[in-house]
Design a protein around this nucleic acid. Structure first.
Length: 525
RNA sequence: GGGCCUGUAGCUUAGUCAGGUAGAGCGCCGGGCUUUUAACCCGGUGGCCGGGGGUUCGAAUCCCCUCAGGCCCGCCA
């Protein structure tokens, strides 16, 4: 059974309406890792719906969280906004310069991410956390937290093993300069929290009006109750023993809530990406990833992995293989008709089918609608050999992959594939580089028999018609005359053309080449 | 120092919760396709389940120890 279905099953035991949620701080550019946070929760939500449960999916944007520091992509002018809730910080301009404030920092980074989510079929109910504070939704929880101040302090100290500092207060008011930092609480008279800020200015905040916030560990616990959240997968950082999940659960009870079960997902790592490295500034965002592979593949990357396994997100060969794995699964789904299937095989099959189901952009979508009918590997090859899309379709029609006109799915795939090929993320192993001179490795691997064939071919092909068919006839004819095994003839050509022992149809490659260039290569051998 | 996750065929991994003869995909190798391929179809190869010890009739699975990789323990989400 797929993990999302399993979780849905557990949630059904809990009864009532299900609310799956994610929470992300919009402190900067969203990246591919955030997709796991979102999709883990969203897939559970979908699984709940599929199980006939009443379910909603919430995306809580931590817009009330303060700007922590001046990130590298921000101008130093942002220094004065440190400690300010992100909803009240002006969005940066293109070069990180301080914006005019028409758009908030939080909105600025959120908007493109929401667009990307829509493309992958995620349509969350978006909750801006600062609005929740402004609306007074937190007021009751804040009041309870203040009343239970000492119990909460004990819980945090006991569970996290951390000492809560003197003067700690379970509500952090915004000071006179708009910052949450350095504000000391001096008293509480419902609904106002009195304080003195770092400048020595005194004031008071109305807990019903977004004039302050709960500290994270309490904020999280409170929102579970406020929104009736029944499931919120959290990153492994929250999951550490004594982490915010462990303190959140008892705090939530204290605030009258019924917290979700602890669920922790592993990170997506950018390891093993070859030329990609964060230090080189070459990270990948969801939008960028969507330029390369279709949304269902991006979903499948998450769906196919168990929640507690880390994912090496690799825009190179691994993504290639994942995409082809998806194609195979959809085109040729495991069949349940086998009676002699073992229990394990059956479970594995159900899990795979679940992963495909949850990878669909539209809920309940037919996976076969998203199938291209061609492996990514093959398409990548054709896209490199054929300069025009028409050429690709013709080749696919000849090879039987395609009947009639290409579907929208397929032409979309080709467009993305061309982007991928032209970009820095394309796997080098799949790149077809036509040599301009014979490579060292090729030279080392060419036998006398190979050379003899190549030189004969040079003579024969110099006045051959320059078409796929004619070139192929010529190659086959010469190999017969030269008495070389066909296989060896092609091996020789692959070495010369690609500096490899094998490759795509030789004639297809040669037909796209300039005759002079090809002859020069043959003679160079 | 404390804790969490992971370690199964060359690669990605299922199976670990409820012990019962190690499964899959890719790759690779071979064959077929009267067109060669990185297409397509068929077949095959491949694993002292990180290591050691223990419990058991029986351990990838439970217990202890150990090695390796990743991550968390700053009101930071």
């Amino acid at each position: 059974m797929h993990w999302a279905d399993y979780t849905a099953q557990r949630l059904s035991g809990r009864g009532g309406a299900q609310v799956a949620a994610s929470g992300i701080t919009p402190s900067g550019q969203f990246h591919i890792g955030h997709l796991r946070e979102i999709l883990t929760a969203e897939m559970i939500h979908r699984a709940c719906l599929d199980a006939g449960l009443d379910s909603r999916y919430l995306f809580i944007v931590d817009s009330m969280d303060p700007l922590r520091r001046v990130y590298d992509f921000l101008s130093s002018d942002y220094g004065r906004y440190i400690g300010h809730p992100l909803a009240y910080v002006p969005a940066p301009g293109p070069d990180g310069e301080l914006g005019d404030g028409t758009t908030s920092y939080a909105e600025h980074f959120l908007a493109p991410f929401i667009d990307a989510l829509r493309t992958i079929g995620v349509k969350p109910e978006v909750v801006m956390n600062h609005e929740a504070y402004q609306s007074g939704a937190f007021a009751h929880s804040i009041d309870l937290a203040i009343q239970h101040k000492e119990e909460i302090r004990e819980l945090i100290e006991e569970i996290s093993g951390r000492e809560v500092p003197e003067g700690w207060f379970p509500y952090n008011p915004i000071g006179s300069d708009g910052s949450l930092d350095g504000v000391r609480v001096t008293g509480y008279e419902h609904p106002r929290v009195h304080w003195v800020d770092g400048h020595g200015v005194e004031g008071s905040s109305d807990i019903r009006k977004g004039e302050g916030k709960l500290p994270w560990r309490i904020d999280w616990a409170a929102r579970w109750g406020i929104h009736g959240i029944t499931c919120e997968p959290a990153g492994k950082d929250h999951g550490a023993a004594g982490g915010s999940f462990d303190t959140g659960i008892p705090i939530s009870h204290l605030l009258g809530g019924d917290p979700p079960e602890k669920m922790v997902y592993e990170w997506i790592q950018l390891k093993g990406m070859g030329p990609m490295s964060s230090s080189a500034g070459l990270t990948i965002g969801p939008m960028e990833a969507l330029d390369l592979v279709p949304p269902e593949i991006l979903r499948y990357v998450i769906a196919r992995s168990k929640v507690n396994r880390h994912i090496d997100f690799d825009t190179g060969a691994a993504l290639f293989e994942t995409a082809d794995e998806y194609e195979r699964l959809v085109a040729n789904p495991p069949s349940s008709s086998e009676e002699d299937m073992s229990k394990r095989q059956r479970v594995a099959m159900e899990t795979q089918l679940g992963a495909v189901r949850l990878s669909q952009v539209e809920i309940g979508g037919d996976p076969t609608d998203s199938v291209g009918g061609v492996s990514f590997r093959h398409l990548a090859m054709l896209a490199q050999i054929k300069t025009t899309d028409e050429g690709v379709w013709e080749s696919l029609q000849r090879s039987g992959h395609l009947e009639g006109e290409p579907s929208q799915t397929l032409s979309g795939r080709l467009a993305r594939m061309r982007t991928w090929i032209d970009g820095p993320h394309f796997p080098e192993g799949a790149r077809i580089v036509i040599q301009t001179e014979v490579g060292d490795e090729a030279r080392a691997n060419l036998s006398d028999e190979h050379r003899g064939f190549l030189s004969e071919l040079a003579g024969a092909i110099s006045d051959s018609e320059w078409s796929n068919m004619a070139i192929d006839d010529c190659i086959r004819g010469v190999s017969d005359e030269a008495g070389i095994a066909k296989r060896q003839a092609y091996v020789a050509l692959y070495w010369v053309l690609l500096d490899r022992s094998h490759g795509p149809r030789v004639a297809s490659i040669v037909a796209e080449m300039d005759r002079g260039d090809f002859l020069a290569l043959l003679e160079d051998a």
